[in-house]
Design a protein around this nucleic acid. Structure first.
Lengths: 164, 164
DNA sequence: GAAGCAAGTTAGGAGTTCCAAACTCTTCGG
DNA sequence: CCGAAGAGTTTGGAACTCCTAACTTGCTTC
C-alpha cells in the first residue's frame, strides 16, 4: 500500500483540482498564490507529487492531474464539502470560519467520523420528529446567548427564559 | 507574539502533563512509549520545548513542565475533552475513534469552532424543547441504519418507517 | 528577430520530526 | 565499590516544508 499523502500534499492536489474546475490552467504561480506560498515551494511539491504519480509536470511545462491524482483530489474535496456543510448548517459557524476549519479538518478526520457526520446530516434531513427544529432552536438560542439573554423557552446564561 | 506550537509539540506537552497528572514521574522513556516514538525523538523535542521555555530538562535530569508549559498543556487537554465529549455524546462514535479524532482535532480546530461546540453541548443540556430527544432519536436511527432498516418514525434508507 | 519581463527552476539554507547506531551516564546489586 | 544493565544522549541521516537569491526559459513587444 502506498504511503498516505501528507495534509500538504492533499492541499496541493485539491488546489490544482479547483483551479481546473474553475476553467483555468493551473500555473505554478496561481497555485502558489492560493496556498499562500512562494513558487519554489510549488515546484518542489509538484516534484514529489509527480514521483508519486499524482500529477504530470515537465520543466516549464503544463501542470496536470493524473487519473489517480484527480481521484484523490476529488476525495479530499468530498471530505471538505461534508465538513463544511456540517460546520455551516449544524454549528451555524460564520462562512470564513467554516471554510477555514473544513480545510484543516479534511486531512485529519477519520473516515468513520466523516461517515457519521454524513449520517447526522442525513438524519436532520429525513427526521420527522423535530430534529431540524432542534437545530433551528440552537440558532435562536445562540443569538440570545450573544445578547446575554435567555432564549424564549430554553434557559439562557442566567438560567431563566427571556422574552425574545 | 510567540510562534505557535506545532501539533507535535502540543502532544509532547499534553503527554507530560498527563503522566504527572497520574502521579508518575515523566521519564524520557515513558513519554516515548505513550507517543509511539523512540527516545531520541523525545530528547530532541524536549530540547525545543526547553528553548521555548515550556519544560525544564537538564542532561540526564528530571523533566518538568514550567508554569507556561503547564498552562499550555491544560489548554490542549481542555480542547481535547470538549472535542471528545462532542464526538462521543453527539455523534455517538465508538470510544476509540472519538479518542483518536479528538487527539488530532485538538491541535487544529479554531477557537471559534471549539467555543461553538461547547455552546452546542450546553444547548443540549439546558434546552427544554426536545434537543436531547433529538440526539436520542439520532442514536436510534443510527442503529436502524446499521440494520438497513428504517427507524420507527423517521424514514430509513428505503424511505419508509419500520417497526423497531 | 532581439530585448526585456514575467514565470519557473535551481541552489542553498533553516526548522521540524523521525529513525538507527553508538556512546555516556546513573543506579543498583553483588 | 565496581560493573552491568537500562536510561538517556549524541551523531548522522532521511523526509517534508518553507524561504531567499540567483539563474534559466518562454513569450511578447518593438
Amino acid at each position: 500500500m502506498p504511503k498516505p499523502l501528507t495534509p500538504n500534499q492533499e492541499m496541493y492536489l485539491k488546489t490544482i483540482y479547483e483551479i481546473v474546475d474553475e476553467g483555468s490552467e493551473p500555473r505554478v504561480k496561481s497555485i502558489a498564490e492560493r496556498l499562500g506560498v512562494r513558487m519554489p515551494s510549488v515546484t518542489g511539491a509538484l516534484e514529489t507529487l509527480r514521483v508519486r504519480g499524482l500529477v504530470s509536470h515537465d520543466r516549464y511545462g503544463d501542470v496536470r492531474l493524473t487519473v489517480r491524482g484527480r481521484k484523490t483530489a476529488r476525495e479530499v474535496k468530498t471530505r471538505n464539502d461534508l465538513l463544511h456543510k456540517f460546520l455551516l448548517e449544524v454549528l451555524k459557524l460564520p462562512p470564513e470560519i467554516a471554510a477555514r476549519d473544513a480545510c484543516v479538518l479534511e486531512h485529519v478526520v477519520s473516515p468513520v467520523t466523516l461517515e457519521r457526520l454524513e449520517s447526522f446530516l442525513n438524519f436532520l434531513r429525513v427526521c420527522n420528529r423535530g430534529a431540524s427544529e432542534t437545530i433551528a432552536h440552537f440558532e435562536d438560542w445562540l443569538s440570545c446567548q450573544e445578547r446575554g439573554a435567555a432564549c424564549r423557552e430554553c434557559p439562557g446564561p442566567g438560567g431563566k427564559p427571556c422574552a425574545s
